[in-house]
Structure formats: C-alpha cells, structure tokens
Design a protein around this nucleic acid. Structure first.
Length: 574
RNA sequence: CGGUCCGUAGCUCAGCUGGCAGAGCACCUGACUCUUAAUCAGGGAGUCGAGGGUUCGAUUCCCUCCGGACCGACCA
C-alpha cells in the first residue's frame, strides 16, 4: 500500500522479492561466491582448451533473456564482459519439482539481477560460446528496472545518451554502456604508466595538504572552508606546487603527486570544480630537460595505452612521437598575427589587442595582455604537440628569469589539440627575487586582478635556506585522458562530475496529514494525486471532486480501502 | 551571463494549423527444449518537467520558473 508511488515494474519486482523469500531463497545472501573464471577468459581460451572449461563457475548481472518454454538463453555480464548462458529446465531441476526453473528463473528473476552459475562451456548451433548451466544462485535481486540497450552487429539500439542520467547515475551508465568502463580503465592505465616511469627514475610519490591556509602555487579563485578547532579559514588547494618545492628544499631529489585541485570557477565541457593534476619536481634540472622528459611521459602513456603514438581525436590524428615542435610565445604570436611584440610595452600591446579585436581590460598588465593575445590568436592552432616556451614574467611569478632573454621566464606549456596539457618551469629559487615577485602580484591584485597570487611567506623562508636549481612540471590528467581516449568533454573522463543538485519535489511527512485527520492509509493516494504538501491540499475548493478522485485511485490501484464521503474529505480541509 | 534547441510510459522516441495519450523495447498472462535486437497471441502501464494565462476544450498556443544539451563570454 505504501508503494503507490512506485512504478508498476518496481512493484512487481518487490513482489518477486517477497515471493523468493517465501520460497526460502535469500535474495541477498551473505556467503562468498567462489568463481573460477571470467567471461572474457572463456571467450579467449575455450576453443583452444575446451577441456579446461567443463566445470566453470562465474557470476554477473543478467542483461538479456530469451525464454523458450523449457529452455532459455540469457546474457550474463561480469567485470570482463558478457557471455551467453543456457538454462534448461530439466538440467537445473532434477526431480519432479520444477519450481527453480518455472517460477524462480522464468518469473522471479529479471534483467539486472546478479546471479552465479555453475556449468560447462559449449558452442551453440549458431556458433556462440555459451555456458550450459547446471546450477544457479541468486546473489542480488534488482528491484529497479535498468534501461534496456540492445545491440546487433556492434550497433546499439536505444542506448542511454542523456547526460543527466549518464553522469548523475554513473552506475547505470557503467552497466549499460560498456565502452564507458573502458575509458576509466584507460584513465587508470595512464596514471599507472606515469607512476611506473617516475618510480623507475627513483622519484618519490608524496602527499601534500589539500586544506591549505594560503592557497598558493597558481592563480585561481579558491574554495574556502573553516576549521572549527583552530577557528581559522582554510582553502581547498588550487595547486600543490609550493609544498612540493618545500620537499625539494628538504633534500628529496625528485617528488611527484597525483593531486586533486579545486577551483571555484566556471564549469563547462573542459572544466570541473575538482580536477586531477600530476605535478613533479626534480632537482638539478631545467626546463629544457623537462621538455624532453615530458615528451617521454606522453610517448610512454600513448604506447602503454594504444601501442602506438598515432592517436585519433575527433577527425584528426595526433602524432605523439617526439620530438615536439618548440616555439617561443613571441614567435608564436608573430607567426599567427604577423606582429612582433617582443619589445612592446603595455600601451602598445593594448593597441595591438584592440586592433585585432582581442578583448582586454584596464587592469590587465603587460603579461596578461600577451597571454590574452596568445590565447585568442594562437592557442587553438596548435593541434599537433607543441611546446610554447618563454612566458612573460608578470604571469609567471614562480619561474626563473630566462638565462639570456630579457623580460621572459624559463617556462613552457605543452599544447595538444589546441589545449594546454602541461605547464612547466625552471623553478625560481632566488628567495629575494621570489619575494619581489610576490609583492608584484600583490600590486596586481590591488589593481583589481582577483587572480593574482597570495603571498606565502613560509615558502619564501624555505627558499632562503636554499633550494637546488629545480625544474617542475604539471600535467592535467583529465585533459590528457580526454586526449588519449578521444572524449570531448571532461565529464566523460570523471566518474562523478560535479552536477547541480538534483531537484527534489517537496513532500510533507505523513504526520502532517494525520494531524489534519487524514487516515494514514489515504496519505499515499493523496500524494499520488499530486497533493504532496498540506498547502496544496488546502487549496482544494471542491471536496466532492477530491473524494471522487481518491475513491477512483483506490479502485484503480486495488487498495481495498473503504470509500470516502465528500463530508469526510471536507473535514480534512477545514 | 547571452543565443539556439530539448523535457511525453522503466528506456529510446513519435504526436500536424488545439479535439478521447501513441510506437518499439521493457513489464504482465499464455505458447515454444540451441535462441541471439529470439518469435507468436493477448494485456496494462502516463501529474505529457512545474506553475499561471488564452480557450467550450491545451501535450499542442502565450508567459514565468525548473532541469538539460549545443554555441558564444570567463577560467585549467
């Protein structure tokens, strides 16, 4: 009776659940279920070694059923893939009692249920490798129907594509869209590939604070939170750079971290409020060395994942085989605008921006203007991997001045498919210069740039003890994964992308209704008719009509309640 | 934040210039012992995103709101 808000199919599945229990079958058994094979193993090896597959046991979710009287085919999906099973009445029911087949298998089991099967592998007349089941065990009953996706010759029918469902109920997406699982396996492989390389070089994987008193190391708006015991504000980190460099000061030769960073900014196809960055810092190296190392990282990840450095993205082929093109930012701007900005000051740059219709604002300094020019006019052209090198000092406050070029720093970004994939420097280790750069940032922030960096005095203190010359690099793991798995939105490489809260229909609790004199058994029918709050109930003008609707609902849903008179209903509304 | 499009059964989607709410899959009943998008016969399933307006009558037209997608602006 309390189930009137469930769909017909959900009610039927709940009834199946209690029928199973009445038959003495636990729909959610506690015991370990020992399997000895995965679907993929059977597909790969059955034909060569049929004798090894006479007693198999596997478990998975029922994805499809084809019942033909006393025999049935079904598809079972485990973590490795799908395999067909064949269930024959007289093979699973040895005596006269055919309940396990006629009632349990045919009627009480559903698509979505998780079962274990024991049997032997054979090949059907149609040539499909199949498990002939001798015995099955219900491992978990599903009481919510799955979307039905059918497939023939690799073509999907009725595939679930609604992003709302796919991202919000990722578990459903993973069940019905098998290629989605593959993307996340690849994501893990990419991280594994990088970790292997770093560890084999003797670099140390570390963990640094996510809750930071000063959100340093990058320019971005942070999330802010509060620590009650200390009574201080804390920020969710926007970068871990300053902590990793403290560790280089502390004497580690190379440190790296796969870090979740958090930025309180816009969300779209390439931005999620939390995202993953791998940052690595290595002593006694410079950015030239780091470019070579970055090439090696990207090449290895691609080879480990695809066995090739030619990867498809959209309609393009990206060639990740080093060496990658290297071009300075000023040359890049010259290449795409024909303008040499290398000796220009702020006023001239602003005029150039205006003449090229590049948006700019008064609080932008020289560095920001150059950045803006590059972003608008150049960035999207770099489809094949390209290192953009030597960035303006103003936008690179943690970077060493260039050893020979004035006004620029030893910094590179790796652009692939028109997007920034990696960002690296020869790290600034001069504590006096660092302090000066922080002060410059402070002035920018006073000028109105809300993205200028905070000053981290402890970091400066660390540098005062002496940091070896160091090169550091960060790679956006989400974006690298998008690139290597050919996904066009960041939501497709994050298991649980940030979503707006699910809207929840307001609904008053039962007590609110009973206070008004509504009998408890009539609360659900009322809600089903749309009177989910007392306020809505009060708006009713014709109690007779409501009584009529309720009696109709009673009859339609076979609730078996005594009929209501208009007077009774009018009493609730008083 | 601006422009375009979308929201109908568990899922994928039709529904014309306003007139009884539709299909396929899924579900239920029945048939069928090698099927495979199984098939065949029958059945029931809906707050047509929410609220308001116009109308004798709104899923359809208008307004507001909510949610989503794509394209722009901002950020990694």
């Amino acid at each position: 009776m309390s189930n009137t808000n469930l769909s017909e199919q959900e009610q039927i599945r709940r009834e199946s659940l209690s029928e199973l229990r009445k038959l003495g079958i636990d729909p959610y058994p506690a015991a370990e279920y020992k399997t000895n094979v995965f679907a993929q193993d059977i597909h790969n090896n059955f034909e060569a070694n049929a004798e090894k597959y006479v007693e198999v046991c596997l478990a998975g979710r029922i994805m499809n059923r084809r019942i033909m009287g006393n025999a049935s085919f079904a598809e079972l999906m485990d973590s490795s893939g799908r395999i067909q099973i064949y269930v024959r009445r007289d093979d699973i029911c040895h005596g006269d009692d055919k309940t396990m087949y006629n009632t349990v298998f045919k009627r009480l089991l559903d698509i979505g249920d998780i079962i274990g099967v024991k049997g032997h592998v054979f090949k059907t007349q149609m040539g499909e490798i199949t498990v002939h089941v001798d015995e099955f065990t219900i491992l978990s009953k599903s009481i919510r129907p799955l979307p039905i996706v059918k497939e023939k010759d690799g073509v999907l029918f009725d595939a679930v594509t609604d992003p709302e469902m796919r991202y919000r109920q990722r578990y459903v997406d993973l069940i019905v869209n098998p290629q989605v699982r593959d993307v996340f396996r690849k994501r893990s492989q990419i991280i594994q590939s990088m970790r292997e390389l770093f560890n084999s070089n003797g670099y140390l994987e570390v963990e640094t604070p996510i809750l930071q008193p000063i959100p340093g190391g990058a320019t971005a708006r942070p999330f802010i939170t509060h620590h009650n015991a200390l009574d201080i504000p804390l920020y969710l980190r926007i970068a871990n750079e300053l902590y990793l460099k403290r560790l280089i000061v502390g004497g580690f030769e190379g440190v790296y971290e796969f870090a979740k960073d958090f930025r309180n900014e816009g969300m779209d196809r390439t931005h999620n409020p939390e995202f993953t960055v791998m940052e690595i810092y290595i002593a006694y190296k410079d950015y030239n060395w780091m470019m070579n190392f970055t090439e090696e990282i990207v090449k290895k990840a691609s080879l480990d994942l695809h066995g090739t450095t030619q990867v498809p993205y959209d309609d393009k082929i990206i060639n990740l085989n080093p060496p990658f093109k290297r071009i300075s930012m000023t040359d890049a701007i010259k290449e795409h605008t024909g303008i040499d900005i290398s000796s220009m000051e702020e006023d001239e740059l602003r005029k150039v921006c205006d003449s090229l219709n590049v948006p700019n604002s008064p609080e932008m300094g020289k560095g920001k203007l150059i950045d803006q020019l590059f972003g608008e006019k150049c960035e999207h052209h770099y489809i094949q991997p390209t290192f953009i090198i030597d960035y303006p000092t103003e936008t690179s406050p943690l970077t060493k001045m260039h050893r020979s070029k004035a006004g620029v720093t030893e910094r590179f970004e790796l652009m692939i498919n028109g997007k920034e994939i990696a960002n690296a420097y020869s790290e600034l280790n001069d504590p006096v210069d660092q302090m000066q750069r922080f002060m410059d940032q402070l002035r920018l922030s006073e000028k109105g740039d809300d993205e200028a960096m905070f000053i981290d005095l402890d970091f400066v203190r660390a540098l005062e003890y002496g940091m070896p010359p160091t090169s550091g690099m960060g790679i956006g793991i989400d974006r690298l994964t998008m690139l290597l798995t050919n996904q066009s939105s960041i939501q497709d490489v994050l298991l649980f992308p940030q979503m707006k809260p699910e809207k929840k229909a307001t609904s008053d609790p039962e007590e609110k209704y009973t206070e008004k004199g509504v009998p408890p058994e009539w609360v659900d029918p009322l809600k089903k008719l749309g009177y989910t709050t007392i306020a809505k109930l009060k708006e009713v003008e014709k109690p007779g009509k409501l009584a009529n609707d309720l009696n109709g609902c009673n009859k339609k849903n076979k609730l078996g309640l005594a009929g209501l008179s208009p007077e009774t209903v009018a009493g609730w509304l008083a």
